[in-house]
Design a binder for these strands. Sequence first.
DNA 1: ACCTGAACACCGTTCAAGT
DNA 2: ACCTGAACACCGTTCAAGT
Lengths: 208, 208
Amino acid sequence: MPSSSQEARKTPKQSRSAVTVEAIFTAAIQVLLRDGPRRLTTTRVATRAGVSVGTIYQYFPNKLALLYALLERHLGSLAKAVEEACEALRGRPVLEMSDELVRVFLDARTAEIETARMIYLLAADLDTDGLLTAIRDRIRTAITGVLASAADARFACVDTAGHMLSVILSGATRTVLERDDPGALEIVRAQLPLACAAYLTQAAQSKP
Amino acid sequence: MPSSSQEARKTPKQSRSAVTVEAIFTAAIQVLLRDGPRRLTTTRVATRAGVSVGTIYQYFPNKLALLYALLERHLGSLAKAVEEACEALRGRPVLEMSDELVRVFLDARTAEIETARMIYLLAADLDTDGLLTAIRDRIRTAITGVLASAADARFACVDTAGHMLSVILSGATRTVLERDDPGALEIVRAQLPLACAAYLTQAAQSKP
DNA sequence: ACCTGAACACCGTTCAAGT
DNA sequence: ACCTGAACACCGTTCAAGT
């Protein structure tokens, strides 16, 4: 599936169509939560949005493009949250960084946990390589940058440490997100900062 | 979707039908690799397997049940590999455990990396809660057991440590599996044992 | 006991016609 | 400029008929 098929067909120029697009997005999320990913049909979304099926195809070349836009929104807000946290953490000690980054990852994904779960399920049908690469590059760059600025540690290879930290954070938080187990979430919330800190401490040579 | 719809409709009693079921499985994987998950249709699988569409429905109540069986096979072999590794690691030091467990997770998932990737993509359409719970329980139990037997460490709370280690291993290996980036894979292969060991060392109080 | 394949319901997508 | 909805191609599933 070519990536061009996943971009919006046209940007709404008039306020009427901006409202229509917003209604389509909202309806898609509602159908997703109410009926599940397999019952997310174009007709159902159109009906719920109060428009005709054809209208959807004025703004999205196909159904996948609509789903892609939902995923793009969600991942974009995660990357932005990480970037802002890293900006604020500049120059702080690594222990603070571990704590705060774990918090940001978990919060971003548990805030609307059902929506996030559903959106990840949709992603299976999409060609998400480009989008995921872009998002993880943003996250990795932000994390590597903040690690390099740490007040109390210098890393043998800050790129490796940043890469590894983002893999651990993404993987562990996504793993608990996929499960519907509050107990597992609490263990991760408590232990993941310790695990990150232990790794970073070991990957760094403390400054004199 | 009720879980009963994901079990095999009947077990093949005669050798002819055992061959048919195997042909359906093989064909499904071939179609998956060749045409991708969205083009995995029952007709396509039937044609490739050299049978009629109706034949598929003799052994699987619906298409999802067939996909579920594929996922079940794949995850079962991962859990088995982890259990066997843990059995062999009983009584060894924690550093050896970290190294070996990372190796097992990565090997199990990169051996047939394309197939594994495709099978995970399919999982989105399935009701996998029960299966995933069973698999992760097997993995967590095996890991907790082997940690408790470590020669050189005693854990403040071995259940917590086992839980956390399995989340990190599952998350990080799956995260690199999803990406098509050999560089990321190599970093994880080299650094994940260090991260696991650092966490375990910190979670344990060394014996005198 | 196992297999076939036409038939049916339903979904994604289009496009001529409307406002 | 935007929206409608009947029409078409295609997919999952069934079941009467075959061997």
